[in-house]
Design a protein around this nucleic acid. Sequence first.
DNA 1: TGCGCAACTGTTATGTAATAACATAATTCA
DNA 2: TGAATTATGTTATTACATAACAGTTGCGCA
Lengths: 164, 164
Amino acid sequence: MSTACDHDHDHHDHHLDAHGVEARLAEARKLCEAQGERMTAPRQRTLELILSQNAPMKAYDVIDRFHPDGAAKPPTVYRALGFLEQMGLIHRIESLNAFVACQGHEHDHDHPEPHSAAFLLCECCGQSEEVMLDLGSIDRKAAASGFKVRRITLEAKGLCKACQ
Amino acid sequence: MSTACDHDHDHHDHHLDAHGVEARLAEARKLCEAQGERMTAPRQRTLELILSQNAPMKAYDVIDRFHPDGAAKPPTVYRALGFLEQMGLIHRIESLNAFVACQGHEHDHDHPEPHSAAFLLCECCGQSEEVMLDLGSIDRKAAASGFKVRRITLEAKGLCKACQ
DNA sequence: TGCGCAACTGTTATGTAATAACATAATTCA
DNA sequence: TGAATTATGTTATTACATAACAGTTGCGCA
């Protein structure tokens, strides 16, 4: 994964402190309530761990850190991840087999569905940035083939500003 | 993966018959020779299986079908897949954990390196179409963050013309 | 020609990611 | 309250991928 490099990886652009995490959890609870969904303990714990991380987090890292003592069972966490993704609270990064909290700006949780997003993934420090893109050119290209797009995965790997 | 549906999935746009496969293998051999690389037996067998498939193929399907009798060992196939991807002969589809032969038009194997491509993936029939996209808007967006893009994964899921 | 290096393959074992299947518990609402 | 729904707990298994090392092959060069 990470190339050898000597600069620090502490440029935590998206790092949230305990207050930040709690604020985001509160938003998430509100969102669930508004949607008639339940923010249960395992779901919240899973989201908390992902929010506390400043980079995409592996499912088994969530599993390992789920309980103060000992790990959770995989289905517990995978079910929570599925729910959170459905709610648009996290995204799955396919090329990393990992999950990251939604940093989306545009949709503002008016459409709390699994939405398409684009990610810049630093191969050096591991951090990700969610960016909004005009995906119209993809839709047009697809339409030219008669293809109806439902969801787009766009993951750009490279080096972030701090790692170049 | 596939949604229940009643239409046929035999619209094999990219299906190659035995002759087509052999022609593509010949091209691949030529490409390897030009690059000073060796198209060895396991590499060619792996490429042959992927070319013969009309949709992205799982690594373990290659493994299972590698020998007429019995399976190959995983490292044999994963190494071949890695080589073929390096040579730009196949692409890995991250969201499917699968591999598909390169259908790229534009680069014409002048740059037989692992190149970025975009894919339309039908969730009904499983077929894929490789499309060329202008990825400039992504580069621009990334540049605005100081991010240097090295490689892009773009996978659009939806329904192909025949499956709508 | 045959030595020596580099590239490639064979093999065993293990590591990592994800889900199937079924039992139990909590929530909702008639 | 009791039936239906939704969610969690638990065991086991399946799917995906690589580490590590031994053996072989191709190839340039003394």
